[in-house]
Write a protein that binds this DNA or RNA. Structure first.
Length: 407
RNA sequence: GGCAGGUUGCCCGAGUGGCCAAAGGGAGCUGACUGUAAAUCAGCCGUCAUCGACUUCAGAGGUUCGAAUCCUCUACCUGCCA
């Protein structure tokens, strides 16, 4: 399902092609997040127009609402949401953290060094509780209890029917102790084997359904030995003749060590399998990830931030709501080729945000998604052209300088 | 012209003697957000300032140890009756 194209001369970065039943993905690629089978505020037609190659939805959210049976009856995720291209689903693993230890807290990416397993969210307040067999969730919608195990996650993701699905894993935070990281990783690895077995069982049991590819998820936090071992073990895992078809790199990762951690992991993973860096990231993180050999990326930032009037430009990110935009009749970014920048001014978008008009979120989400998709597309082109290092230096130089001067 | 009610910080609006620089909204300003409990959340929001000090509740005067709160007059607004 994956073929490598060009590679970087001095780093693991590469271009490639992922083939799915719903089409191909040219990598590296930025995959917009559509948690509940919609990229918030953006029509599928706009997503196509802005160059998105795939969408990533979430098994936990779709399980609670509308229910995987309904997605299944609709003909699967792609048909249900009217997105013709490839789709991914996350396993619900992220919610083990966001509704568990990270409950009501920011997922700090720079809080490393504090070793305290339980300081984050007190156990009694959490909506998710992990044990060795799985996770018990209290629905954030109605408080009802639900149980996810690796098998349940696979069953749900098979029903939802995305082209690429992820193994059910546990995320830790940067604040967890080494001891907890080890324990958690052991659990995640055991779950990976169970996911693979269940995935194989479901695939064989339902031969008429479109093939789905299962990615194993590498955890291990910031520890090199754990990361390498996790990657190695997943790469060698084979159950009933089945292996993972790709790999996800997961976990809360300290920004500064992102590239390093990706290299440890990708060093151990097979070259002919795609690697997805989960939940990353900002432009500077994407450069790190691509250079380190990751192929696909997803992140909520472009849409989440757009809804509160933050937009990206080649000279950094800024807030459209500040007074400076009130009488600025230029586009968000003068080098952008998106629909929004072609047709709308900052002053107009500023007005829409002030007036709390919905289309503001739509227009800015289109812009931000285009910005990220195009950025990673330009990295792909640069790898092919042998100009990645130049692009990184030049692009990031401008972006970071602009960002810093704004502060 | 008569009777009644009202005038609070940028706006709306609570507050009827000390716990009031004054609740709560809104607006404004800052900041955060990385496999989305997120069209969300946090902070600031009279002035100067480090605790703290100073000037405020239409205006002027008064009562009181103490007034946004009580009294008098003035100005303006609203309702009902002429």
């Amino acid at each position: 399902m994956f073929s490598v194209g060009s590679t970087l001369p001095d780093a693991p970065g590469r271009t490639g092609t992922i083939t799915t039943p719903h089409g191909q993905i040219q990598t590296p690629a930025f995959i917009p997040v559509g948690t509940k089978a919609t990229v918030k505020a953006v029509l599928p037609e706009s997503l196509s127009d802005l160059g998105a190659q795939a969408v990533l939805a979430n098994a936990y959210h779709l399980y609670l609402q509308p229910g995987p049976d309904i997605v299944d009856e609709a003909g699967g995720l792609a048909a249900f949401m009217n997105w013709p291209g490839p789709t991914f689903t996350d396993s619900g693993g992220f919610q083990v953290l966001s509704l568990g230890a990270g409950f009501k807290k920011t997922l700090a990416m720079d809080a490393i060094g504090v070793e305290a397993d339980d300081v984050i969210a007190p156990g009694k307040d959490r909506l998710a509780h992990v044990d060795d067999d799985g996770v018990t969730f209290k629905s954030h919608l109605d408080g009802s209890r639900h149980r996810f195990t690796p098998e349940v996650s696979m069953q749900i993701q098979h029903q939802i029917g995305a082209d690429i699905i992820f193994a059910f894993d546990e995320l830790t935070t940067l604040m967890n102790s080494r001891a907890y990281q080890e324990l958690s990783l052991e659990r995640t690895q055991a779950w990976a084997a169970r996911c693979l077995a269940e995935h194989q069982r479901l695939t064989i049991a339902q031969p008429d359904r479109p093939a789905q590819a299962l990615y194993g998820v590498v955890q291990g936090a910031q520890h090199e030995d754990l990361r390498r071992k996790a990657a190695r073990d997943l790469a060698s895992l084979e159950i009933d003749g089945r292996r993972f078809e790709g790999y996800g790199l997961g976990g809360a990762i300290e920004k500064e060590s992102l590239g390093t951690i990706c290299r440890w992991v990708n060093d151990e993973l097979p070259e002919d399998a795609p690697r997805h860096l989960l939940g990353i990231g900002e432009p500077e993180d994407l450069f790190e990830g691509v250079e380190a050999g990751c192929d696909t990326f997803d992140c909520v930032t472009p849409t989440r931030v757009a809804r509160s009037s933050r937009v990206y430009s080649v000279r950094g990110r800024y807030n459209l709501l500040v007074a400076a935009s009130r009488r600025d009749f230029g586009p968000i970014c003068d080098e952008c080729d998106c629909y929004t920048c072609a047709n709308y001014t900052k002053a107009y978008l500023h007005h829409l945000f002030k007036a709390n008009e919905m289309v503001a979120a739509t227009l800015c989400s289109i812009h931000n998604e285009r910005f990220f998709v195009r950025l990673v597309d330009s990295m792909r082109a640069a790898i092919t052209a042998g100009e990645f290092a130049e692009l990184k230096t030049e692009w990031l130089g401008r972006y970071l300088a602009g960002r810093d001067s704004r502060d």
